[in-house]
Amino acid sequence: MSSGQLFPHKHILGLAQLRAPEIDFILQTAESFKEISQRSIKKVPTLRGKTVINLFFEPSTRTRLSFEIAAKRMSADTFNISSAGSSAVKGETMVDTARNLAAMNPDCIIIRHSRSGSPGLLACHIGASVINAGDGAHEHPSQALLDLMTVREHKGEIAGLKVAIIGDITHSRVAHSNIIGFSKMGAQVRVAGPATLIPPGIAAMGAVVCPSVREAVRDADVVMTLRIQQERQLDPLLPSLREYAIFYGITPEIIALARPDAIIMHPGPINRGVELDPGLADGPRSVILDQVTNGVAVRMALLYLIMGGE
């Protein structure tokens, strides 16, 4: 199969750079790969001989493991560098790190970094493909793609859906990629949260800013709530997590405003009882673990499309 024409990208830096048919093509590819993870021998030879480096400057369990499992199921050789063991703690610059990695001829670098735009800087100084696994408050494209895949599985079609994203929109790369991705695929994206955590320019990204959580959730097909970080209390952006839970948390009472068949999503890790009621997280509407499962398939698709698709 030749994917070069349908998928001309070398790097995955964000959903902002992808067109709707390309997103659709990634999702189709991921859907076709999902079955591999259900086999007893979970491995295909597609990326044999390819070298994939997980370069994680920020702590991560789920995303790093998901990428590593995806690469290994495609038979790529994978290597993990985490911030604690990296030369960054010795003062090496990103550009020097990129040049040194380039000298070892990897095929793909998967990078997570606390600074927005770091994956693009890396891509400028290395011949390998670069996949953004989350950069600052910018984008987290593989997360949005797995969210799109999960919604498509449950709802069939994304166009026309009402998607409510609730919480810290300012600092959430997940929210940013999802606003871009769901808008491009024809959904109506609504956001709500404390005014201190809704930045300017969200409407320009394609979302409708709702004045309350209730209004955002009303008649929604999808309710996605975001992790609220402890440190946001210091900025000062929030009085307390308790107050957040009372006024912005997703509770059974709030979810009753959504469509009867609405699904609940969360990118993890969950602060149970803060942004999401524990009963809802484990209840029948929750698709949170489907998101995790689909993460592997989406990442297999990304690795395949940028490295194996020739």
Partner: peptide, 13 residues
């Protein structure tokens, strides 16, 4: 500058 572009780039404004 704080605005549409800082939000799009995920940069503090």
């Amino acid at each position: 500058n704080e605005g549409d572009i800082s939000t799009r780039l995920g940069l503090r404004g």
